[in-house]
Amino acid sequence: MSFEEFQNRARLFVVGALEPDEMAEFENARREFGEKAEAFISECYSLSEAFALSLKPAKASDQIKARLMEMVKNRQAH
C-alpha cells in the first residue's frame, strides 16, 4: 500500500468507516509506516473534532453534572 492510499484509509479509520476486510491491510500498513503513520493518524482526529464542533451545542440537564461529580466523589472515597 502506498502512503497516499494509507492516508485515505486513515481518514476512513478515524471516522469508523473502514470495512473489516480493509482493517487488516490498514493495520499492516500502519506497522510498516511506523511513526509516520501514527503522526498522520493523530492529525486525522481533527476530522472527528470538526464533525462534533460543526453541531450546535446542546444543553445538558443541570442534574447531570451534579450526579457526575457525586459519583467521582464516591469513587475517590473508596
Binding site: A52, K56, P57, A58, A60, I64, K65
Partner: peptide
Amino acid sequence: LYDRYNGILKAL
C-alpha cells in the same frame, strides 16, 4: 472539562 465540552458532546 465538563463545563467546556458538555454541550458539544451532548450534541454529538
